[in-house]
């Protein structure tokens, strides 16, 4: 069990919370909430230890493309980088859909 914390500079604030993904092996939950802060803050809890660098890479790439300003809570159950990317971009889309 590992807890990770990341901050990212971001420019696109979100207006409402969103919850994507499932609590299941190989998957993850992403919960995004609007924030007053100037940076996005991410708290990640994962059952797969030792992958901090991979998470850093996935998040760098996501924020390069979609600089969403929000508080992120992520509960991971061993998702591959592809699945992490899917859930983050689904969350991003879910926000766009109603804007």
């Amino acid at each position: 069990m590992e807890k990770m914390h990341f901050n990212y500079a971001a420019t696109q604030p979100i207006e409402r919370p969103v919850h994507i993904g499932v609590v299941a092996s190989g998957d993850l939950e992403v919960i995004m909430k609007p924030t007053d802060k100037k940076e996005s803050e991410l708290n990640i809890v994962t059952g797969s230890d030792g992958f901090k660098e991979v998470w850093q890479n996935v998040l760098n790439r996501f924020f390069d493309r979609y600089p969403l300003l929000a508080d992120f809570e992520i509960n991971d159950f061993g998702a591959t980088p592809g699945v992490v990317n899917l859930r983050l971009t689904q969350a991003m889309e879910a926000l766009k859909d109603e804007q």
Binding site: V54, N57, V58, R61, P81, G82, N85
Partner: peptide, 8 residues
């Protein structure tokens, strides 16, 4: 290529 060595 995602976060593979190539994608990075």
């Amino acid at each position: 290529a995602g976060v593979t060595p190539v994608g990075l």
